[in-house]
Amino acid sequence: MTGKRDIPWLLASPGILLVTLVALLPAAILIVKAFQDVDTGALTLENFQAIFDSKIFGQAFWRTLRIAFFVTLVSVIGGYPLALLIARANPRYSLVIFVIVLFPLMVSVVVRTFGWVVILGPAGIVNEALMGIGLISEPLTMTQNEFGIVVGETHLLMPYMVLALLSVLRKLEPQLEEAALSLGANPLVAFFRVILPMTVPGLLSGVLLVFSLAITAFATPLVMGGARTPLLSTLVYRYALTSYDWASAAAVAFVLAVIAVAFVAVQKTVAWMWMSRHEF
């Protein structure tokens, strides 16, 4: 009997072992490093003191939150109509949109961001067009700054918002809307009273997911933001591989990990609470 009970752990052990040795243990070591003095190895908070005092960390911290906020906002603004359209369009059109939203998810982040560099760059389409119609005389700076990062990350993360919304929208019968209309609600009232309340769980989980992914995104801010607009994630990289300040890198990584894990915890709790109270 005991032998049978051990089988689950035995079969799962390669996976558990791998993740523990390659991800969790190194992460734990990194956490310890964040609290250690570089030279003596003694436990200390001075690494955090150092980054909190540095201007660049503060800027990166608020910039990360600001960008994540805008990325989430635009993802909702764009993701909601896309998800609604996928849920309501005829099957063929619906599949087309679904593919258009999903396919970029599998394309390399670098490729996608590079596409935006070409579009938004000083000699890109947008600038050429705006100068062509005489709206501007100098090219606008849309790459190597926060605007570019927001555009790139929104493109990166909007599919997740669409998927989160679809999970609730697909269960929402179109007749509910028509029932509301027949009862005297105009389309706006029907949307805010009937559709929106029912999509709140999906919206909430999408918002939390996109926000947490926006905070930890790395390749897009690296390519799009350049050296002048570091975020927390690119700051870890810069401290670690450009200035070899590993104590600071570990401290920033710790802050980033805490935010990310906190978000996952909130997301799981919210999802669980919603599931247990409102299963319809």
Binding site: A23, P26, A27, I29, L30, I215, T216, F218, S233, T234, V236, Y237, A240, A249, A250, A253, L256, A257, A260
Partner: peptide, 8 residues
């Protein structure tokens, strides 16, 4: 975060 794992 990937960057944390990578650095770790």
């Amino acid at each position: 975060p990937g960057v944390v794992i990578g650095f770790a």
